[in-house]
């Protein structure tokens, strides 16, 4: 099983990964961002799991008559990674809830606009001296 069909797991993993990554970057909605992030992580799980599969191998349970086993270690590792992924999603969602409470929105642009509105009049009101240059917020936010 060489060539393209044999690697279809990898291609799926790559596709999922890019899709997730694209969602994270392109979506302004924080929840959707988290969905993309989850997709991104999951693709790596698939990548690991397919890595452990040995062609023609059996489940790694000692049985008579079976000589070739799949490698169980990546599967175990990915169990841990899944837990990590769940935890990340949980923390992320918790943050989104708090953002919603604080800003009343989960759209990145709105949040940005509110922050700017808070920051700039503040600056011009307080700041009569010329010491303070323009704040480089824009560059700091992705």
């Amino acid at each position: 099983m060489n060539g393209l069909p044999g690697l279809y797991n990898d291609f799926i993993a790559i596709f999922l990964m890019m899709a997730g990554f694209y969602v994270v970057i392109s979506q302004g909605n924080l929840v959707k961002k988290l969905v993309g992030l989850g997709l991104f992580q999951t693709s790596v799980f698939i990548f690991y799991i397919s890595m452990g599969k040995v062609a023609g191998g059996n489940a790694p349970i000692l049985t008579d008559g079976v000589e070739v086993y799949s490698n169980p270690l990546p599967h175990v590792l990915i169990l841990t990674a899944i837990v990590v992924g769940v935890a990340t999603t949980a923390v992320g969602l918790a943050l989104v809830v708090r953002i919603q409470e604080a800003y009343g929105t989960v759209e990145e642009d709105d949040i940005q606009a509110q922050d700017d509105a808070e920051e700039w009049p503040d600056d011009t009101a307080q700041d009569s001296s010329k010491d303070t240059g323009p704040d480089a917020n824009g560059s700091a936010r992705s």
Binding site: L30, L37, Q41, T88, G92, V96, I99
Partner: peptide, 10 residues
């Protein structure tokens, strides 16, 4: 924190 979470997770 959210930004950090996204970038940190990536």
């Amino acid at each position: 924190a959210f930004q950090y979470l996204v970038m940190g997770t990536i």
